[in-house]
């Protein structure tokens, strides 16, 4: 998963990630705990989470 420049740091994605794999501090950062389940992506209000193709 990649976070693009649209990210405002609202933390919405963090609350939906079941792995606790998103840390936010002004911007989101995906940690090694990510299992690429893609659950978080549609919850981002500014389309900042890009799913790898």
């Amino acid at each position: 998963m990649k976070i693009n420049d649209n990210c405002v740091g609202c933390g919405q994605c963090t609350s939906f990630c079941r792995q606790g794999a998103i840390v936010v501090m002004g911007k989101a950062r995906i940690t090694d705990a990510c299992v690429e389940c893609e659950i978080c992506a549609p919850y981002c209000p500014v389309k900042a989470i890009e799913v790898p193709i």
Binding site: N6, V8, G9, C10, G11, T14, S15, V24, M25, G26, P45, V46
Partner: peptide, 10 residues
């Protein structure tokens, strides 16, 4: 618990 920031389009 969580730090949330908001600007521009959100």
């Amino acid at each position: 618990l969580l730090i949330q920031s908001y600007h521009d389009s959100w």
